[in-house]
Amino acid sequence: MSGDKTGDKILGVDRLTMRFGGIVAVQDLSFAAERTKITALIGPNGAGKTTVFNCITGFYKPTGGTIRLTHDDGRVIALERLNDFRIAKQAKVARTFQNIRLFPGMTALENLMVAQHNALMRASGFTLLGLVGAPVYRDAEKHAIDLATDWLRRVNLLDRADDAAGNLAYGDQRRLEIARAMCTEPALLCLDEPAAGLNARESAALSELLLSIRNDGTSILLIEHDMSVVMEISDHIVVMDHGVKIAQGTPREVRDDPKVIAAYLGTDEEEAAAVMEGGT
């Protein structure tokens, strides 16, 4: 097991707390995500899942706690100290949004080109080499187009490459947003409800896409309400309710945990257990 880092901790969240005025959205949350695994973060509406994502990806500055990202080469980065764009640029954490955030007036291909901004910026000598049309930059751009084309093919949007992103169907937009995040070549991919609004066939295709991304070596952190997707593809599940972690484990363990059922049904624990027993 020399080169294989599978199973190492890539993300360690420790005692994360996020307060908005009086509201405690996340409280003392600790969990870990393993390398090249899919870790799911689930919980009822308002549990604080998106808030955790916003803390990890630098959109919020956590009130307390630490978030550590360990790279392949052993570098450890304190995400709570980096701010917004640096997390995507230096820590290589990419994300999608619960409400799709594409660049609607740009084509699908352009969306994926924008995602490769930092690499292209370096290649264009911070614009100067690009302005004079240096071959270095032209090669880099060709390479970027190739990468974008690959991803368009993988998310089955190659024939829509030159269409405006805003003109794509909802499910296509969701997949394009994932492809755009992948074009930043992330170590950790954070997906906020990627299956929301998809039909059963599209959800199945999404599961397959996420598994293939994982198998290619990208770790995934997933927020999802669609349990068929979560149970099918997750390696590890963390369950939140009212800002705290109430359970974690494999899909099987979590599915049978009375606390989880109670949280989803909105009743207390004993009642839920009684319901479960009565039902079986």
């Binding site: 990806t57 959109f59 990419a94 949004f97 955030r101 352009e110 080109m113 995602a115 690009g130 930059y137």
Partner: peptide, 21 residues
């Protein structure tokens, strides 16, 4: 060039730009 695309992307969605580094 990447800078020009970033300008237009900024016009389209600033939050998404930050998420892309």
């Amino acid at each position: 060039l990447p800078i020009g695309r970033a300008w237009e992307a900024l016009r389209e969605d600033e939050v998404a730009c930050r998420a892309l580094g």
